[in-house]
Nucleic acid binder design. Structure first.
Lengths: 243, 243
DNA sequence: CTTAGTTATGCTCAACTTGAGTAGAAAGAC
DNA sequence: GTCTTTCTACTCAAGTTGAGCATAACTAAG
């Protein structure tokens, strides 16, 4: 251990510190595809590019609390289950200064997603283009509702890519699929959500059988209304089946 | 957005920043159980308690580079595959000041684990006591070779617990099992590693069949030497089988 | 009112995977 | 040579998955 490292270990206040921020990946389903909520940057650097909502971490604020504050103040969303994703620490990821950012992931049901879009925060929906299968990983891109590409600021394409990868990995053995659905849903809706996350279709009867056998869903007895054809039974997520 | 948040967003240098550190979870297998390499704290606070090797992140240093530097300088280990685990940001996790720590995980084959213990860094092996099954999570504790409990410093019990949880989760679909073995190994050794990570035994023939069918291992043609009974075939990890 | 069109739901069957047990092979110890 | 122990391959039952078919339930068109 060198002298400077010794000092760095015991008197860190004497050394310059990176700034610490949080960035939020807010995902929902839009037109059957995974979509994220982004903000258009109005100022330099990277003005005009699209960025994740983010903010700096206060000195007496936990990371989770900072993420919740950004969710509330920058995205105008009252409540969502936030989960830490990964921490991005490339030295040049922000041209202004050294900023290390802890990325968080939240899943929004369609109603919450639409409400956030309509709120005054200026959020836009960006459909995610995921050019890789499974959990192999790789870059993703974003496009507007009309298919026009949305250029992403900083390393936010990497952050979105990791969010998709993580989401796919957790799909089979956690309740992430239900987080994107309203309280009552049909098996078809659940399958569509899984297909959107996987980016690949699913076998219908095997999917239904698996979901019912797993014990995570309970029939409500009610049926969906307003369909042109036979209405499907409505289910709800039954957390007790997980244990 | 309030005025103070606006300023926080655009002039963060004016605000006090948390210190940023990395902590390393260095895992190996010892006597058939998962074990971590820990350092005994010599100074206050928490003097005498056992801690993960860690250090502060330099202003022009990536997180990965900081982790590699700590691996080299604090643990005396030249090379290991480091993987970011999670970032811990409780406000009071260190009594001296606000320190946010990015935890990294590295898996050491037995030879590297023993070499690190024998090095001059002062590391000790701590067998992990994991009182929960599967990936349910929860606190873990550590004990010395003689079974005496080792009190853990700061929130390092939480960090170790998350490392075990992550390791168990990745066991079935990644190559983590091979990272804890030498280049050539028997199927029995591979099974023992998997059993140590899971904390539960495995069906022998099903395990062998699964490993061979997966295509990740290739027979070397050689057999282990020095056994009292029939020597097992030696295999090596075949990365090409992953694709 | 009847029929066509469309989706939901339950059923069956073959293919594949997993858990468990048995039998022969291969080495050292005696 | 025989015994002991482990490695390895094989078989069989049980469970899971992919795929298709028949019937039910509903709206809209005629």
């Amino acid at each position: 251990m060198t002298e400077s490292e010794f000092l760095a270990g015991y008197d860190p206040a004497a050394y310059e510190r990176p700034a610490l921020a949080v960035d939020l990946v807010l995902l929902g389903i839009r037109a059957g595809r995974l979509a994220a909520l982004l903000l258009r940057r109005g100022q330099q650097p990277q003005a005009g590019l699209w960025a994740l909502p983010g903010g700096f971490v206060g000195i007496a604020e936990t990371l989770d609390a900072a993420a919740e504050r950004v969710l509330r103040d920058k995205a105008g969303i009252g409540r969502a289950r936030l989960e830490q994703l990964y921490t991005f620490g490339a030295v040049d990821r922000d041209p202004r200064m050294r900023i290390v950012s802890v990325a968080y992931l939240a899943l929004l049901p369609e109603a919450a997603f639409v409400e956030a879009l309509a709120g005054g925060a200026g959020l836009a929906a960006a459909a995610l283009v995921v050019p890789w299968a499974g959990e192999s990983g790789g870059p993703v891109s974003a496009e507007a509702d009309d298919g026009a590409p949305l250029a992403l600021a900083f390393d936010h394409a990497d952050i979105l890519a990791l969010a998709v990868k993580r989401l796919r990995g957790k799909l089979d053995y956690t309740d992430v699929g239900f987080a994107l659905l309203p309280e009552h849903f049909t098996l078809r809706q659940l399958q569509d959500v899984h297909a959107a996350i996987r980016g690949a279709p699913l076998n219908k009867s095997a999917f239904r059988r698996r979901m019912r056998d797993r014990g995570w869903i309970a029939p409500t007895g009610a049926r969906e209304a307003g369909t042109a054809f036979r209405p499907a039974e409505l289910y709800r997520f039954d957390r007790s089946g997980q244990f």
